[in-house]
Design a binder for these strands. Sequence first.
DNA 1: GCGGCTTCTTGACATCGATCAAGAACTCGC
DNA 2: GCGAGTTCTTGATCGATGTCAAGAAGCCGC
Lengths: 189, 189
Amino acid sequence: MTELEKYIVATMGVADADVQRIASFFQPITLLKGEYFLKAGRMSERLAFVQEGILREYVVRDEKEVTKWICTKGYFVVDLSAFIFRQPARFNLQALTDVELHVIDAANYKRIGEVLPDWNELEKRFITRCFSALEDRVVMHLSMTAAERYDLVFAQRRELFNQVPLHYLASMLGMTPETLSRLRARPVQ
Amino acid sequence: MTELEKYIVATMGVADADVQRIASFFQPITLLKGEYFLKAGRMSERLAFVQEGILREYVVRDEKEVTKWICTKGYFVVDLSAFIFRQPARFNLQALTDVELHVIDAANYKRIGEVLPDWNELEKRFITRCFSALEDRVVMHLSMTAAERYDLVFAQRRELFNQVPLHYLASMLGMTPETLSRLRARPVQ
DNA sequence: GCGGCTTCTTGACATCGATCAAGAACTCGC
DNA sequence: GCGAGTTCTTGATCGATGTCAAGAAGCCGC
């Protein structure tokens, strides 16, 4: 069973027969380290599930890259707004390691609704969870110091800190690489 | 035509007969300045449209109130996660002025789907727009200084700055009231 | 219109975090 | 295993923002 199939079972409580059918709408693809799943400004009508590897979601602002999120196994990668509204992508999605994805295009995505009767509800719940996670993130930035943000994210996603260049994590945490380095070197924590 | 009905027409392209029908699922209520639409920790199965007035969405963290958002005419107020998952509310919604709302409960909300055939799609698009706005807000905190954040939000929602106590706006912008005061007093801007 | 509360500003100062610069440590291709 | 590039750390310094404190200004009930 692929990670994707496990995910479907775990979060959607779908019958075994349907799991296979849904998973079959996805195509496996591989990206090499450095390649892009999505480039800002381009149209993209696809969404993918991360089977293996790490990607970085970033936007360019004043010639600087701002890393918005790091996606690992079990995440969906997509510019949701671009996917739903069929607009040019607003951000970039680049592989930080070789990556295995399961990709689905908008047409096949639509067909999931025909297989799963309550797909709309599941979809809504999924987006709501994403929304809620972002709410938490905003509150984090409104109320926590750099050290507190580091401690929180380190506790939640420790594995990132030995797999991803730290300057990307620093950007995702809203601080400079130097500050992140000094936080890591703190005496006690 | 109420603000709510205008909103429905503007964003959903619904036939006139349906507009009335949908709007009829909502009940008008009034809150006095200081009263709560939602209290953190309590169950709440309702959502409201702001017809008139201003509310503040905040969470308490380390005994401090963190203002997450200020809602004015035309916004929906709801703890989305609590509403969708029927969980206790995570934040507070308090009236900053006397407020007129159109309220709908979960049961009536469900009935909208029976009136509007593509309600699921509209709902998804609405939540996606909210998600996208939050993405922008996270990027704002990752990449902008306090002065830049102030300038941006001031440009977008100037009317707030003479209607809402500034310490709430300062909190929403992720800075202290003193810093906000100094930014406002800057020579040129 | 007075007293008391809240809000807003201002100043002095402390602290956090950014910047700049250098070098150490670690890839990775050859 | 060598060299070039990247990543990471460390130090010195600077600027932005927070903290603390005081007072001014605005608002409201009586």
